[in-house]
Every structure is written in C-alpha cells, then in structure tokens.
C-alpha cells in the first residue's frame, strides 16, 4: 500500500483524519489529492474509507498549539500545488516535535508552511484594503475579487464586522463563489445558484467614483513620483477592480 496517491473528500477535517490514519499506520503517501484530481497513468490511486471526525482539530491544537494549527489551515486555503503533502510532512514532524515544530525552520515543510501561511494572510490583508464596493440601484453594495487563495470567507468575516448594517455581496471571480450578507450572517453560495436582480449602479455611484479619483490623483506628490514603489505595494493584479486605477490601466 506504500507509494500511493491517496484521495480525500475535499474537506479540511477529512484531510486531517486521512493524514493521521497514514501516520498511525506508517503509510508514506506519494501524493494526497482531493476528488477533483485526474490521475495520470503512473498513479496508484488509493481511496480509503475514513470517518470525518472533527475532534482531530482539538487533538492537534492540544499537542501542537493553536498557532501551528492555524498555519496548517492557511496552507490548506492556499492555491499551492502539493499543499496536502506539505501538511502531511508538517504533521509528521509535529507528532515528534509537538508545539516546537515551527521552530525547526531548517526543515523544508516548516519553511514552506510558514511562507505559505504568510502568503495567504498577506493576501487577506491586501483585500481588506483593496476591495472596492459599488452601490447598486437597490442600495446593495457589490464587489468582485480575484484572489489566488481561497480567502473569500476570511474577507467576508472582516466586512461582516465592519459594515454590519449594510447588505453586501462579494464575488470570487476565479472560484465562482459568492458571499452574501443579509445584515445578520454571510452565506457562501456557488455562482450557479445565484443571480442578481439588477446590476445597474445607483445614481450616486459615478459621482462618488469621480470624487475618489479626484482625491487619488491629487494626493500623490509629483516631486516624489515613484511608480516602482507603488507597484511593489499594490501589484497590478489588484488594479482591475479598483476605481481609482481605471484611468491608469
């Protein structure tokens, strides 16, 4: 059974259960993939029947600490290709080094876990700032984002607290998921099950966009112009959905 490609049922909890099963039975996976994976000819695909026991989470937190657990979760949200394998190796070392596992920065899986979780959190932070709402005719606020990682719910969590008395919708264009907030909770829905009553912008919208563009253009000091510095902090991939960058793109 060694050297196979193990399949998990797309959820984080199931992945963790599978990994612990592998560790306990001394099985060394060649790869771990979700059900969307199309195996190539050389793959030896193995599907195990493993229960989804959420208690695994508290088990990891007690033995490796909540910081380690959160880092693993951020890796899971990332778009990195072999993230499941990175999580496997981190947990394998975690069993040995317990809450000190992340101090072992000379291990490749630790280095990757730290870097990837930073990359995911960094993207969440950027979208907290760079996301732009547009007001629709019916006063609903609407925004589109195109994140590399699966962070729509983390972004939603932020706006749930910030704009709690507004109706808003955020769409992840890449993953085709929509987050809808009804002043109480937000719901993640797949794009197929969702349609907008109107996509017409409110009357005020153009005026506000223009006002913001005026401010944006005015606030830069021309004697200090520095395109490279701007690009470093606000890479072009974000510009597409930002009102103030429309004229510059």
């Amino acid at each position: 059974m060694n050297n196979g490609c193990f399949i998990y049922e797309d959820t984080f909890v199931h992945l963790l259960n599978l990994i612990f099963y592998l560790i306990q039975n001394h099985l060394k996976p060649e790869n771990i993939k979700n059900t969307m994976y199309t195996p190539n000819l050389l793959d030896h695909v193995i599907v195990l029947k493993i229960e989804k026991n959420p208690e695994i989470i508290s088990k990891i937190i007690t033995s490796m600490g909540s910081f380690t657990f959160r880092s693993i979760y951020y890796v899971f949200l990332s778009d990195v290709d072999n993230k499941e394998l990175i999580i496997y190796y981190l947990l394998l070392n975690g069993v040995k080094y317990k809450e000190k596992v992340l101090y072992h920065r000379n291990l490749k899986c630790v280095e990757k876990t730290i870097n990837i979780s930073r990359y995911v959190l960094h993207e969440v932070h950027k979208y907290k700032g760079f996301l732009r709402f547009k007001e629709l005719e019916n006063h609903i606020l609407y925004a589109e984002i195109e994140p590399e990682n699966d962070i729509l719910f983390m972004v939603s969590h932020h706006f749930q607290r910030r704009l709690k008395n507004e109706y808003w919708i955020i769409k992840d264009v890449k993953r085709k998921i929509v987050s809808i907030y009804d002043k109480k909770k937000y719901y993640l829905v797949s794009e197929e099950n969702f349609s907008l009553e109107t996509t017409k912008l409110s009357q005020k919208e153009i005026e506000m966009g223009e006002l913001w563009k005026t401010f944006y253009k005015t606030i830069g000091i021309k004697e200090r112009k520095n395109d490279r510095c701007r690009m470093n902090f606000m890479p072009k991939k974000y510009w597409k959905y930002m009102v103030e960058m429309e004229d510059i793109l």
Partner: peptide, 8 residues
C-alpha cells in the same frame, strides 16, 4: 487602501 503615484 491604496497607494498613490508617489508610492505612499
């Protein structure tokens, strides 16, 4: 929330 033309 944004970065101006001077990078600030």
């Amino acid at each position: 929330h944004s970065f101006a033309s001077d990078g600030r």
